[in-house]
């Protein structure tokens, strides 16, 4: 990991996480569609970061977000879980020819379709964990499911549009 990467990561943290807890947190569609925008930071973390460090980062980010949501442990648990799943999902989504030499996950480097699939899968896991833990069980399960659905779609949309805004795809 180069110094350049660290700066990039810090910048990404500022954009996604800080922006999330200050502003995007209050974006709610009809009380079911929340926006977990901070996941944009975790999902686009560089592939060159070793897994233990990745888990530590996700733990800290989850904890930080939890402080703002007043839900200790919930986002922490879900973030660490999807960070552990991330390498497995990436291997699962390997295209036919294999990956080119890449170490960053963006729309421009991976392609729109790949990126959306990847985001959707991890977000479903994340939101499912978060809302189940919030409801502390399977009571109101249809409500939980509708929350999972709306939140996943909304968050994916937000993260992708932000990607387009930040990193213009190479022509």
């Amino acid at each position: 990991m180069k110094a350049n990467d660290i700066v990039k990561t810090a910048l990404s943290f500022m954009i996604f996480v800080i922006f999330h807890v200050l502003i995007v947190k209050y974006f709610v569609i009809g009380s079911v569609g929340l926006c977990f925008f901070y996941l944009g930071f975790l999902l686009t973390l560089s592939l060159s970061i070793p897994i233990p460090l990745l888990l530590l980062i996700s733990f800290l980010v989850g904890f930080f977000v939890d402080l703002f949501y007043d839900t200790p442990g919930i986002h922490t648990f879900a973030s660490v879980a999807i960070m552990f799943l991330r390498p497995k999902i990436i291997t699962l989504l390997t295209p036919l020819g294999g990956y080119d030499e890449i170490d960053e996950i963006t729309i421009s480097s991976m392609g729109v379709r790949w990126f959306i699939t990847y985001t959707l899968i991890l977000l479903v896991f994340h939101t499912l964990i978060v809302f189940l833990m919030e409801a502390s069980g399977f009571s109101y399960f249809h409500w939980t499911l509708s929350k999972v659905f709306c939140t996943t779609i909304f968050t994916t949309f937000m993260i992708c549009s932000f990607q387009y805004l930040l990193f213009t795809p190479k022509s």
């Binding site: 888990l55 530590l56 733990f59 989850g62 200790p72 442990g73 919930i74 922490t76 648990f77 660490v80």
Partner: peptide
């Protein structure tokens, strides 16, 4: 390490 962090999160949660 994953288990360790998850247990920490659960402790926080409960």
């Amino acid at each position: 390490i994953f288990l360790f962090f998850e247990i920490l999160a659960l402790i926080l949660y409960f």
